[in-house]
């Protein structure tokens, strides 16, 4: 049973994720953190298969934590769950080593699908992200 760590500074989002996953018993929510430092510490202790991570958090943000976790635990997949839909943000997320990108507004419908994709070694980008802008941002910046 794949284990999931949820990282978000808002308890209401952590409870929301818990609510969504409670209807999918094949996913085991093994821990919670409300900042980047605790996320790194818990990731080391629990070695979850997937981490659902917010971007904007006080202290160390989600991108920084993703970078470090990707370095230390390359097997752990990070799925970012955020309010930001700009293609620049998505690009930074994948550069940091994230494997998936889901918007909070679409979490209810997409979260479990995205979890399945990243655990199957795929990459998930929310369909709400402007694919053309994303491509342009990749080409222009390389």
């Amino acid at each position: 049973m794949p284990r999931v760590l949820i990282v978000d500074d808002h308890a209401v989002i952590r409870r929301g994720v818990q609510g969504i996953l409670s209807t999918y018993p094949e996913w085991d929510l093994c821990g919670e953190a409300d900042n980047g430092q605790d996320a790194i510490r818990l990731a080391g202790e629990l070695a979850p298969e997937v981490i659902i991570m917010d971007v904007s958090m006080p202290g160390m943000n989600g991108l920084e934590a993703t970078r470090i976790i990707h370095d230390v635990l390359p097997e752990t997949k990070v799925l970012l769950l955020t309010l930001h839909s700009s293609s620049e943000f998505v690009r930074s997320a994948f550069r940091a080593g994230a494997r998936g990108y889901v918007l909070k507004s679409d979490a209810e419908n997409e979260l479990v699908r995205a979890l399945n994709v990243v655990i199957g070694e795929g990459t998930y980008v929310s369909p709400a992200i402007d694919a053309r802008a994303l491509k342009e941002s990749i080409f222009y910046n390389n």
Binding site: H10, I13, G16
Partner: peptide, 14 residues
Amino acid sequence: DDHDIIRRGLKELL
């Protein structure tokens, strides 16, 4: 709330 996930979280808390 316009976000499903927030409503879900509020419901869990309440």
